[in-house]
Design a protein around this nucleic acid. Structure first.
Lengths: 407, 407
DNA sequence: TGCATATTGTCCGCCGAGCAGACAAACGCA
DNA sequence: TGCGTTTGTCTGCTCGGCGGACAATATGCA
C-alpha cells in the first residue's frame, strides 16, 4: 500500500472551483466586450443573471471591475455598464534590444499610459540591471498618481529558461545563464516576468483578441528586427517545450551554407532576414553581427531603405525582395510544422509590406505542403503599436485573466 | 445592445462541473494505479474519502468500475480493490496500410482480446469499406461473448480532416476526399473514429502512460514503416493545427533534391527513411513507391535485412546506417521545432536499434540547436506491441477518459 | 483474552455556488 | 396612464465538496 504516493500533481475540482472558473471567464468577457452589462454577460455565459450579479458585485468590491455610466437600450430598463478597473493599476513593460532598451507604462489592458522612453543597453548584464532598476524607480516616483504597479514584464531577444527565472542564452546580447528575474525583482520590489520577445508577442496576441467569437487559437507571430523572434500558439497556448526553446525557428538552418549568425552558426533563418542582413545586401557587404558595424551603415536604418525603395532605388527594392523571399521560405517550415490559422508579422520591414507581400507569398507557396495553406491569412502589426512592449506587458496581465487548470 | 451574441462558445462551470471533472480524474487514476482502493484514490486526489466513495459507487452502479478482491494492508481494515470494468466493453482497432489492413479487438484499456488478423487493402476505397465492414460484422458475430463494442478506431497513412470525418489525402493509398467515417459507421452501426496513424500513436502514448507522476506531456512519436508517421504532443495534447496537418513532418524536404516520394514531390524525409528506401539502398536500385516493385524485392522485408546485417552482410549494415543517419537529420528539425522531452520510435527497423542508435544520435546532434537536446531520451516501441493498432484503439477510449474542458 | 491502535469505508450536518423563478425598478410607447 | 420590455436583485432549491464522527476490521501487545 502506498502511504504517500508522490506529491499530488492532480488538480481536483473543489467546492469553490466553479466560482474560480466562472470568475475568470467573466473577467475575460468584460475585457473583450466592455462596456457590457450584467445581462449581456449572462447571455454570453449561458448562465443566470443572478449568478453573474454575485460575481460582478464581488469583483466591484475588490476594485477589479467598476460600474460606469448607464448605457442605452432600445426599450426597457437601461443597463449599468461594467468596465475593467484599470485606473490605479499599471504595468511596466521593458523591451531589451541589442543597442537600446525601451520602457513603457501601460494599463492593465496593455494600453499605453506613459509613452516609450529608452536608454542604451549595456553589455554587462549586472550593470544593465542596476541602470534599469534605477530608471524604473525614478519612473515610479515621477508618476505616483498612477497608483499600484502590478509588476514588470520584460522581453529579451534570446532564450529564457522554463521557470522564467533567468536568461539561458541571448546571442545578440552576449548574455548566458543570467538570473535576471530575481535580481530585478529585488532591486525594484516588484514581481518580474521575463520571456523571449517573439513568444511574448504571441502571448499578447492570443490574449488581446477583442470580442472575437472563434478566438484565433493557432497562429504564428513573426517579429523581424535586429533579430528574428518567433512565437507559436497552439490550442490557445504558447509552444514552450521541455527547455522553453520550442518554436525558436530563428536559428533553424535555411540552407547548408549561408551568412554568419550571431549564434555562431551559419545559414540560420535569422541571418537571412534580420535588418542587418537586409542592409548588408543593399550595401553589398558582408556585415556580421559579431563584428563592429561601419558608422556609415550603423546610422542607416531599414526605414531609410524602404524610403529609398519607394523613391525608385532599384537596389533597395531588390534588397527588400530578397529578404521577403527568405522570410517566405522560412515561414514555409513553420507552416508545415504547426499548420497555423494565420500569421502575424511585425518589424521595420513591414512598412514596405505592399512591395514585398507577393514575393513572400510566392516563396511560401513553393515550399508549403498543403495547398490550402499557401493562401494563409497574414496580418501585419504596425510598429507604432509596439508589439514587443505590448508582449512584455501581457506577461504581467495575462496570468491575471487565466482560467485555472484542472485535471 | 447585442441580443443574441453569436453562439456561446464559452464553457462555463455549472453546478455539476466539479463532479464531472473529478469523475474523469478518478477514472484516470484508477486506470493508472489499478488495483487501487478508495482510500488511495482519496490520497491521490487530495480529497476526502467520502467524496471519493460517492463517485466510485456511482461508477460501479454504471458498470464502469468494479470491486475486486480485498487487498493486503500492513494493519487495519483491508481495502477493497477497484478496477476499470473492461469485461463486456470492447473496442475494434483497424490499421490500414498500403498492402494489408490489420484488425484487432481490444479491451477498454487497449489490451488485446482477439489477436491481429489481416486482409489485402483494396485500392478502391468504396470496395474497401464494404469488405472491411463485412469482416468486422463477422468478427462481432463470432465473438458475441465479448459484449458491447464501444466503437471502431481506424488509422490511415495520410491526412484526415479536422472533424475526423474524411480522408483528405492519403498518398500511398491513392485516396482523396473520401468520407470514410460516415460510410463505415452506417455499414457497421458503430461509432467510428479515424485519424492519421502517427498522430494516433502519439495519442495512445499520451493516454496510456501508467502511474507516471510527471506524465510526459511533450514528446514526439515516430512510426517508421511503409511510410513515416509523426505525431507530436504538446502540453499533453496532440498537435493538430488549422487543417489537422500539423506535425506532418514526413513530407518536409530533407534536401533540395532526393528520391521520389509517394506524395509526388522529391526529397521528402519519408522518401529517405521508409522501408522501401532502406531496401532500395540495399539493392542499389531506385525503387519508387509510384512504380510496381520487382517480385524478388517485394518478398524481401526489412526484418530480412536486419537478419542479414546481424549475419555480417556489410551492405545490409550500411543500408541500415544510412537510414539511421537520415532519421537523425529529420528528427533534428522536429526537436528544434517543438523541443520535446523524449522521442518514441517504432517500426521494423527498430529490431536493429542497437546497431543504428549511435549513427542516429550523431546525425541528430549535428543539426540540433540546444546542446542539451542532443542527449534527449529515445524510447523504442517494439513491433509486437502493435503501436498503430493501440493508437487506433486509443481513438475510441481516450475520449471516454478525457477531463471536460472549461474556459 | 482484552485493550490500544491503525486503516478503511460510510454517514450526517454544513456550506459554497449555480439554477429557477418571482419581483421591483426603470424606461418607451401608445 | 397603462402595458410591455429589459435590467438587476432576492429567495428557495439542489448539487456536491468539506469536515468530522463512527462502525468495521485487522494487528500488536500486555
Amino acid at each position: 500500500m502506498v502511504r504517500r504516493p508522490h506529491q499530488e500533481p492532480v488538480r481536483v475540482a473543489g467546492r469553490g472551483t466553479p466560482r474560480a472558473i466562472n470568475r475568470q471567464i467573466l473577467l475575460n468577457l468584460v475585457r473583450a466586450w466592455q462596456p457590457v452589462s450584467r445581462a449581456d454577460l449572462a447571455r454570453h455565459m449561458g448562465s443566470r443573471r443572478g449568478a453573474v450579479s454575485l460575481i460582478v458585485n464581488d469583483l466591484i468590491a475588490e476594485g477589479i471591475l467598476f460600474e460606469g455610466a448607464t448605457g442605452e437600450s432600445p426599450r426597457g430598463r437601461k443597463p449599468k455598464f461594467l468596465y475593467i478597473d484599470s485606473r490605479k493599476r499599471t504595468v511596466i513593460a521593458v523591451d531589451v534590444r541589442p543597442t537600446q532598451t525601451y520602457t513603457m507604462v501601460t494599463s492593465l489592458l496593455t494600453e499605453p499610459i506613459v509613452g516609450v522612453s529608452s536608454f542604451p543597453t549595456q553589455a554587462d548584464p549586472v550593470r544593465f540591471v542596476r541602470t534599469l532598476a534605477a530608471r524604473l524607480r525614478r519612473l515610479m516616483e515621477d508618476h505616483k498618481e498612477l497608483g499600484q504597479c502590478e509588476g514588470i514584464g520584460l522581453v529579451v531577444p534570446g532564450m529564457v529558461d522554463r521557470e522564467g527565472a533567468s536568461i539561458s542564452f541571448a546571442p545578440r546580447l552576449g548574455w548566458r545563464q543570467f538570473p535576471l528575474r530575481d535580481l530585478l525583482a529585488k532591486a525594484t520590489g516588484l514581481p518580474v516576468h521575463i520571456e523571449n520577445s517573439g513568444r511574448a508577442c504571441a502571448i499578447a496576441q492570443a490574449w488581446g483578441v477583442r470580442r472575437e467569437a472563434g478566438r484565433s487559437s493557432d497562429f504564428v507571430f513573426l517579429s523581424v528586427s535586429d533579430g528574428l523572434g518567433v512565437g507559436i500558439v497552439v490550442n490557445g497556448e504558447v509552444l514552450r517545450g521541455r527547455h522553453n526553446v520550442a518554436g525558436e525557428f530563428g536559428h533553424v538552418p535555411l540552407a547548408g551554407e549561408g551568412p554568419p549568425c550571431a549564434c555562431g552558426a551559419t545559414g540560420c533563418w535569422e541571418a537571412y532576414v534580420s535588418n542587418l542582413a537586409t542592409l548588408s545586401r543593399y550595401f553589398g557587404r558582408n556585415l556580421s553581427p559579431r563584428k563592429p558595424i561601419p558608422a556609415e551603415i550603423a546610422s542607416f536604418s531599414v526605414d531609410d531603405l524602404v524610403a529609398r525603395a519607394r523613391g525608385g532605388d532599384s537596389k533597395a527594392v531588390s534588397a527588400l525582395h530578397s529578404t521577403a523571399h527568405y522570410l517566405g521560405l522560412g515561414l514555409a517550415s513553420v507552416v508545415n510544422a504547426v499548420d497555423p490559422e494565420r500569421i502575424f508579422i511585425s518589424g521595420e520591414i513591414i512598412a514596405a509590406w505592399d512591395l514585398i507581400e507577393t514575393t513572400l507569398r510566392q516563396a511560401l507557396a513553393t515550399r508549403v505542403l498543403a495547398p490550402a495553406a499557401s493562401g494563409i491569412e497574414i496580418t501585419t502589426i504596425p510598429l507604432p503599436e509596439h508589439p514587443r512592449l505590448r508582449g512584455a506587458a501581457a506577461l504581467v496581465t495575462a496570468p491575471l485573466f487565466a482560467v485555472p487548470k484542472v485535471g
